[in-house]
Amino acid sequence: MVDALREVHRVLVPCGILIDARPDSRVHAYVERRRGRGFQRFGVVRTNSTELKNDRASDRAIARLVAEGFFTRRRRGRFWHRVGFDSLAEVRRYLWEHLRFVRRAEWVVDAATRRRHANDQFVVRRAVRHEILEANQELGLRRLSKLRR
């Protein structure tokens, strides 16, 4: 991952921009039922342990390149991404097949409520983090030549 980011730095012009956007596994995802103007929370969805490790490795790789002077952090933020479903069964199928999430939600409503609203519309709401980094050409190249020595 660090090698890939060094390659990104190489192909960027001085002060070029790297945009990194990916699911934010530090925040849980939620299963929510659409109702009127808002949403009712039905469950919490955790990221599986393998993906958590991968995400932390990505964070470390970026932090390392920043520490080595290849990039400067310019801006970061988070937004919510909603995926829609026509029933609770569709949500369950999605979670079962999804590679990032654990296969089952932890429900925060009782079984009777889930049955009553099983054919309502649902969303899986998850956080997406984004960060803008700027390539530091001179400093990065100096570090790169040191690393190659």
Binding site: E7, V8, V11, G16, I17, A21, I62
Partner: peptide, 21 residues
């Protein structure tokens, strides 16, 4: 592969990693 990009130095103004890292 990202580890060996087939582009010359300074070829881009912006690189996007969307759901990639």
């Amino acid at each position: 592969a990202a580890q060996r990009l087939p582009y010359p130095d300074g070829a881009f103004d912006v690189v996007i990693l969307s759901w990639t890292l």
